[in-house]
Amino acid sequence: MTIDFNKNNGLVPAIIQDATSYKVLMLGYMNEEALKTTLETNLVTFFSRTKQRLWTKGEESGNVLNLVSMKLDCDNDTLLIMVDPQGSTCHTGSDTCWNEDNSSNYGFLSKLEGIINDRKINPSNEDSYVASLFSEGINKIAQKVGEEAIEVVIEAKDSNDDLFLNESADLLFHFLILLQAKEFQLENVVQVLHKRHN
C-alpha cells in the first residue's frame, strides 16, 4: 500500500470495523510508525493526538483490537481496518464509540426478526398471522416449516423462478418464526456456521 501521509500533517484516519459483525467500532489516526507497529504486532496501534505518542488500543484496559485485514481507500489517505475486538472498544465501556451494541445485523432479516418478536410478546392484534402461529404452539410452527420446505423442493425441480423464490421466502419467514419459538435468533445459526467454517 502506498499511503499518502502528507495531507493531514503525517496522519491518516483509520476506520475500525468488526470483521465478524461489520459494525463500525471507532475512528482513530495513524502515522507511519503506528502503521508499522500495527503490522508487526497485529495489534491496532494509533497515534494519539492528545498524548502525542503511539497508543496501542487496550494497552491499559486489555481490550485490544486484533488486526484481521486492512484496506486503503481510493484517495490513498484513509484506512479501513477489520479487527477481532477483545472486549469493549470505547473508553466509556461501550462496544462502539457511538454507544451501540456490537451485534451482527442482517439488514432486513434483522428487522423482520424484530417484527416477529414483537408479534410474539405483544399478540394483541387478532389479525396477525404470526401471533396466531405462536398461539397455536411449536407443533404448528414446525409443521408450517416442513410444509414450506417441501414446497421449495417441488418448485426447485420446476422452471418457474418466481414460484421458487416465493416459496423460498415463505420457508425463510417460517424458519425465523420457528427460531423465535425455540428462543433463538438467526445469529445463533450463523455462529454455528462460523464454528464449522473455522
Score class of each variant (00 low, 15 high):
residue 131 A to P: 05
residue 131 A to S: 15
residue 131 A to D: 11
residue 132 S to C: 05
residue 133 L to G: 03
residue 133 L to E: 03
residue 133 L to C: 11
residue 133 L to N: 02
residue 134 F to Y: 04
residue 134 F to A: 06
residue 134 F to M: 10
residue 135 S to P: 01
residue 135 S to K: 13
residue 135 S to M: 05
residue 135 S to L: 08
residue 135 S to Y: 00
residue 136 E to F: 01
residue 136 E to P: 00
residue 136 E to M: 10
residue 137 G to N: 08
residue 137 G to A: 07
residue 138 I to G: 08
residue 139 N to M: 08
residue 140 K to W: 00
residue 140 K to Y: 00
residue 140 K to T: 13
residue 140 K to G: 06
residue 140 K to F: 00
residue 141 I to Q: 02
residue 141 I to W: 04
residue 141 I to E: 03
residue 142 A to D: 08
residue 142 A to G: 05
residue 142 A to E: 10
residue 142 A to T: 12
residue 142 A to Q: 13
residue 143 Q to T: 13
residue 143 Q to M: 10
residue 143 Q to D: 14
residue 143 Q to L: 14
residue 143 Q to H: 12
residue 144 K to S: 12
residue 144 K to A: 08
residue 144 K to Y: 03
residue 144 K to H: 10
residue 144 K to G: 02
residue 145 V to C: 07
residue 145 V to Q: 02
residue 145 V to Y: 03
residue 145 V to E: 04
residue 146 G to D: 15
residue 146 G to T: 07
residue 146 G to P: 04
residue 146 G to C: 11
residue 147 E to I: 09
residue 147 E to Y: 08
residue 147 E to C: 08
residue 148 E to N: 11
residue 148 E to S: 15
residue 148 E to I: 00
residue 149 A to L: 15
residue 150 I to T: 11
residue 150 I to V: 13
residue 151 E to G: 04
residue 152 V to D: 01
residue 153 V to E: 14
residue 154 I to G: 11
residue 154 I to T: 14
residue 155 E to Q: 08
residue 155 E to M: 07
residue 156 A to W: 01
residue 156 A to I: 00
residue 157 K to P: 04
residue 157 K to R: 14
residue 159 S to E: 14
residue 160 N to Q: 12
residue 160 N to V: 07
residue 161 D to E: 13
residue 161 D to I: 09
residue 162 D to E: 10
residue 162 D to M: 06
residue 163 L to F: 05
residue 163 L to H: 05
residue 164 F to K: 08
residue 164 F to L: 13
residue 165 L to C: 14
residue 165 L to R: 15
residue 165 L to E: 13
residue 166 N to Q: 12
residue 166 N to H: 06
residue 166 N to E: 12
residue 166 N to T: 05
residue 167 E to R: 04
residue 167 E to N: 11
residue 167 E to M: 03
residue 167 E to Q: 09
residue 167 E to W: 01
residue 168 S to V: 03
residue 169 A to N: 12
residue 170 D to Q: 15
residue 170 D to V: 01
residue 172 L to A: 15
residue 172 L to V: 15
residue 173 F to G: 10
residue 173 F to Q: 08
residue 174 H to T: 14
residue 174 H to C: 14
residue 174 H to Y: 14
residue 174 H to Q: 15
residue 175 F to I: 04
residue 175 F to C: 15
residue 175 F to G: 15
residue 175 F to Q: 08
residue 175 F to D: 01
residue 175 F to H: 12
